[in-house]
Design a protein around this nucleic acid. Structure first.
Lengths: 141, 141
DNA sequence: GATAATTTAATTGTGTACAATCTAATTGTA
DNA sequence: TACAATTAGATTGTACACAATTAAATTATC
């Protein structure tokens, strides 16, 4: 039978899912020397932009919840990259910030997105069109 | 400081990663009544198209390895959706195929991609452009 | 035809993801 | 002010995802 609507090649989500995993596979060896995973790298990027952030705010930025972030942040804390501290104003809140060691990574780790861009060959217009459509999708959820 | 190249909004991989997870979050409740996860659903789609397939061939189609597939296929076998059997020709190979129960899902599960399409509003042209660029990316890895 | 090299799955260990639940703190409201 | 409702993170349990290794079968090479 095989209904057309069920064909793998007619799905949008599948190539998205596959490409994401292939991308993180490219990132892995690039991030290895910094001893961080791809999601941890994203946390660093947010913290390079925003000094201190609650777990909730971090989760909203990365679309992740505390079930994912709490253990991940603990690992990053153990490795001396970040600090976690209860807020004085609101004891429910945990504030996350970079340590000196974490801050020191910024200039070094800038080589990673550069190296990544070399691995993946897209026209500039394709790159921006892709980002535009993805932003439209993320806007809807 | 914050180098532009490290800004989260300048990354291509991040919105891809985020959108993929948001998409699978949309799929989850749609697939719940069939008691399958999104990656398991992808296995079903492949098997609707190809009767019998080795674990290796399945992995090549879905960009997954035996470390992911073996336990996932065992769960699907436990639930009576698929069969796993060593090949007679080559004892290294495990052949995967649908059970009658698995085959019976095809017509019912066709409602899932239809329901998904309603959730996510893209111009037809955006949908195809996205698929084209993703295919180009997957072609390179 | 013995044996080295390769191939296929399975296994092990680490790290996400996320739903569901829990706990403690804060806020809203009668 | 009591106390119900909400909120923030942590915890629990299940399911990927994948690198690295292992085990068994097959193929290549001498």
């Amino acid at each position: 039978m095989t209904l057309d609507i069920l064909k793998l090649d007619n799905q949008l989500c599948f190539p998205l899912y596959a490409a994401t995993r292939q991308f993180t596979k490219i990132y892995r060896p690039l991030l290895e020397k910094f001893n961080v995973t791809y999601p941890q790298y994203l946390v660093l990027l947010v913290l390079f932009e925003t000094d201190t952030l609650s777990v909730k705010a971090l989760g909203e930025r990365l679309f992740l919840d505390s079930g994912t972030l709490t253990p991940m942040l603990k690992r990053m804390e153990e490795r001396g990259l970040i600090q976690r501290a209860r807020s004085f104003q609101d004891e429910r809140v945990v504030e996350v910030s970079l340590t000196e060691k974490g801050k020191a990574l910024e200039s070094e780790i800038a080589e990673v997105p550069l190296a990544f861009t070399k691995e993946i060959k897209l026209e500039e217009e394709e790159y921006f069109e892709m980002k535009r459509i993805l932003a439209k999708i993320l806007d809807q959820v």
